[in-house]
């Protein structure tokens, strides 16, 4: 990088562009940065006044706007929602129930697909690793074992049952709220990934 030959405000602009473009495929961002860096070094002399630099930057426009202009182009990639993308979304959500292997298969499909940006892929990976299977597992731990109902046959015409509540490590209301969140998060991620790949 030759940012040392740039006007300080131009160098700062380039940093903002890099940050704004983190969701782009790395090759795309690199090309864009190279072009904009060339523009900045030609448009703004390193010794220019701040006012001159700001005028040139205004003409160039906001970094976020440039990234937004680059983003719809990603649709050109052979990236539409196909069988593999559907499989990835379904496996990420439910694959965890197949001894966890299903989720890993989903992860491989997710990262190999060109339908999603790096940011999408991280969301798909981290919310929530293991998908719904993890939610169920954590839910069990939070709420304790489900209520047991034991029946000891019929005594004097009445069924005799004892109910023993499972041990819950958190208050039931909080536990239910957490569980709802844990179930909704992977579902929301699936919806998000499906829409992003549309």
């Amino acid at each position: 990088m030759t940012t040392d030959t740039l006007h300080p405000l131009a160098a700062e602009y380039l940093q903002r562009l890099r940050r704004a473009g983190r969701g782009l495929p790395p090759g795309r961002l690199r090309e864009l940065i190279a072009e904009i860096e060339g523009h900045l070094s030609e448009a703004i002399d390193p010794s220019a006044s701040d006012a001159q630099a700001l005028t040139a930057l205004d003409k160039l426009g906001e970094p976020e706007g440039i990234i937004a202009a680059e983003t719809p182009d990603l649709d050109e990639l052979p990236a539409r929602r196909g069988t593999k993308e559907w499989a990835a979304v379904i496996l990420l959500l439910l694959g965890g129930f197949i001894l966890g292997f299903g989720w890993i298969a989903g992860l491989i499909l997710l990262w190999n697909s060109r339908a999603w940006t790096i940011r999408d892929k991280w969301i798909g990976t981290l919310v929530i690793p293991g998908g719904l299977a993890t939610s169920v597992l954590i839910g069990r731990i939070l709420l304790g074992t489900p209520t047991k109902r034991l029946c000891h046959g019929i005594l004097g015409g009445l069924e005799h049952c004892t109910t023993s509540a499972g041990q819950s490590i958190v208050a039931p209301v909080l536990g239910v709220a957490l569980l709802a969140l844990l179930v909704l998060a992977p579902i929301a991620t699936s919806v998000y990934l499906t829409r992003r790949a549309a």
Binding site: T2, T5, R28, E31, L32, A34, E35, I36, E37, G38, H39, S41, E42, K59, L60, G61, E62, P63, G65, I66, A69, E70, D73, E76
Partner: peptide, 29 residues
């Protein structure tokens, strides 16, 4: 905004309607 023209140039490259070559400049990158 001039900046949004660079993504357009990128698209033209990918569409194959333009070809590009990098060359040294007398000044700068």
């Amino acid at each position: 905004t001039e900046g949004t023209l660079y993504p357009l140039l990128g698209r033209l490259r990918r569409e194959g309607v333009v070809d590009t070559t990098w060359r040294e400049s007398p000044s700068g990158p």
